[in-house]
Amino acid sequence: ICDFISSLDLVEYKKNRALVVLQTDPASCIINAKPNQTIYNFITRNNIDLGISYSNIDITKDDILDILKKDNSKVRDIQDTIRAVLERGYDIEICSGSGFIINIEKRIVEFTLTAGGKLFPEVLDVVSELKRKNIDIYVASGDRKGALEKLAITINISTSNVFATVDTKGKALVIRRLKKKYDKVMMVGDGLNDILALKEADIGVLTLQQSNKVHEKLLKAADIIVYNIREILDIKF
């Protein structure tokens, strides 16, 4: 088990990789599934949808299922990551999901993973202040829909303002759509799959509150860099 590793960095480290998110709750569905069944059987028998969160090569859901059909990775491999996240005290109900990183060229599952999150303590105050200024807030993320809707409820924004399991191009598309609705759009991001959206926004803000170690091209994509999410309240917008 490896922790404190960015799944996006793992994908970016080698060509032909894709990060796939299972659209089901890790804490109830996956953890209680039969551990020795293959991931493919678990997905197909339970009619679980897949989301491609990030990839460095074009790939479809059908491509992924075709690879999984011959891969021997088991549900227990994902369950191990869920338990590891819970043991470390992270919340797997919000900003989270379980899935795997697949290698398209080798046609194998290279990593299974579960992401768990914690809200920064400033988030609720920042959201309240933005809403007081009549600024609409949206969430576009590679995480699964159920987790993001719980996040939206937690921070008191509409679940209709959530765009779930969107990849790099999908986030940029969200920004383009919002620019047609608003005079200005600010994008706040912290990962490699935010690069195109940061460039597309009127103001692209990179937050380093979670980590100071980011890819050089992510730094170049941002107009402004902040080290605490509260700093976005000081940006003239």
Rank of each mutant, 00 (worst) to 15 (best):
S55M: 07
G97Y: 07
M187K: 09
D167C: 12
V166D: 08
E149G: 06
D25T: 12
L196A: 13
S55E: 05
K169S: 15
K217S: 09
T114G: 06
Q79D: 10
D125W: 02
F111L: 06
K184L: 11
R144F: 00
T38E: 08
S211A: 01
V185D: 10
D125G: 11
E129P: 04
K34A: 08
K106F: 03
Q37I: 14
K106R: 14
L19R: 12
A18S: 14
K180A: 15
D190T: 05
N36K: 08
I203W: 10
K106D: 15
I225N: 01
S128Y: 05
A197R: 03
I195T: 06
V21N: 14
K179Y: 13
K70A: 01
R177M: 13
L8E: 15
G189C: 10
K34S: 13
L233H: 00
R76W: 07
V166K: 14
P121T: 01
G189W: 07
I92T: 07
S28V: 09
A18W: 12
T44E: 10
K70L: 06
T24A: 06
I157P: 15
I94R: 10
S96F: 08
P35D: 03
L19I: 11
K179S: 15
K34G: 06
L233E: 03
V205D: 05
V162C: 12
E93I: 04
I39E: 07
R17G: 05
I59L: 12
G117R: 04
A27T: 08
L148G: 04
K74M: 11
I157K: 02
I1N: 02
N41K: 09
I153A: 07
S7D: 09
N16P: 00
S141A: 10
L178K: 06
S141F: 01
E122R: 04
A221N: 06
E122I: 05
E231C: 07
S211R: 09
T112E: 06
D80L: 04
A172R: 10
R17K: 13
